[in-house]
Simulated scan of single mutants.
Amino acid sequence: MECIATFTASLPCSSGKTGRLVFDLQRFNGEKTEDATAKRKSEARQKGQVAKSAELNSAFIILSAFFALKMLGPHIYSSLTAFMKYIFSSLSTFSTQDLTIQIIITLFLDISLIFFQVTMPIMLSITIISIAINFMQVGFTLTFEPLLLNFDRLNPLTGLQRLVSKRALVELVKSLFKIAIIGYFVYRFINREILFIPKLLGVELVDSLQYIAGLTTDLALQIGGVILVLAALDYFYQWWEHNQSLKMSKQEVKEEFKQTEGNPQIKGKIKERQRAMAMRRMMQEVPTASVVVTNPTHFAVALKYQKDMAAPIIVAKGQDFIAAKIKEVARAHKVAIVENKFLARSLYSNAEIGDVIPPHLYQAVAEVLAYVYRLNKKLS
């Protein structure tokens, strides 16, 4: 019969009588109230379900890209200027008839080389930063399960549920908030710098381009900083939501424990049988013992000694009921039983079955064995 736990409380009614309000605790059994176990987290990680913020990646990529541009800007400008001078000076020396396929291929290779020289440091910094941020968020994990074909993703109803889900609403609010914040910073920046833009009409083209490039870079770095703060908040939200999604009910925790550790009832039966088998093996060794040292009622330790042994060994020991059983078997097989309270307690506490007796008990055990040998000699 299934046992249903209830909680009963007495409440006064308007008529003066006391009513009984019963809470069935089984109703709360399916609620996700328990933190995810290590096994649940590991399975989710293998499926690619990890706490990760895409906003954090975007923020660091923007900051690293424009920071690299700011640091390498003069070098990029000088490289492009020198290359353009070289190209135009080279082309001016050729006539239409002199432009052969070989010359065009050479020019194309030169353009490709300068392009990679200019863009490679920026692309390399972006790649390193994105890999580092991903690793810091989720560590190293390699799984192909998210790439497997899943027909649920093609289900229109499932897609509609994702569109109207709580997560979609949160993402919408985040996007609107991010647009508002970035728009405010862009407006404030342009409002501050707009008075200087007309002055560029009287400035050299190179100086005006450098000024505009500096403005653009500063604005991008400010926006990147704002996005970074928002991304940090988003990461903590993603971490919280991920943990909430992995929460388990009490029943799920019990079922997982049964799967990993085994059914407690079955394990109990196995341990019970193991104890019974160990008990039988131990009792089979009692008839071969040389002497049984007793407390006399609470402890019993069976010792075996032969000439080829370095020291006596313990073949059986027990307390209370098992001690009585050992003494019963010993009497049935005419094994000597000696009462020695101190020695019985010491042997029981300081050695296990199959162990050699502790060295500090050699003298006491030797006296007991000598007494048993003298007794057997008299009886024979």
Score class of each variant (00 low, 15 high):
T294Q: 02
Q259S: 11
K174Q: 09
F94R: 12
P146H: 02
Q306G: 09
F185W: 00
S346R: 09
E31Y: 11
T37Y: 06
I122A: 12
R331K: 08
F236N: 10
A302N: 07
I357H: 06
S58C: 02
L99R: 03
K85L: 15
P146K: 00
Q265R: 05
H242T: 10
V226A: 14
E2L: 09
I266E: 03
Y211P: 07
I114W: 01
M248H: 07
P74F: 04
T294H: 02
S42H: 03
L215M: 14
D207S: 13
T141D: 11
I194L: 14
F60V: 08
A9F: 06
L80H: 07
F140Q: 13
G183V: 01
E367P: 00
I87T: 06
F151I: 07
K267S: 10
T37I: 01
V372P: 07
A370N: 13
D308E: 12
V173K: 06
M1V: 10
L109P: 00
Q26S: 15
E255Y: 00
F23Y: 07
M283S: 01
Q238F: 11
M282D: 02
V226C: 12
N155T: 03
I128F: 13
L169Y: 03
Q251D: 13
I61C: 03
K247Y: 06
L221W: 00
I194Q: 11
I223D: 08
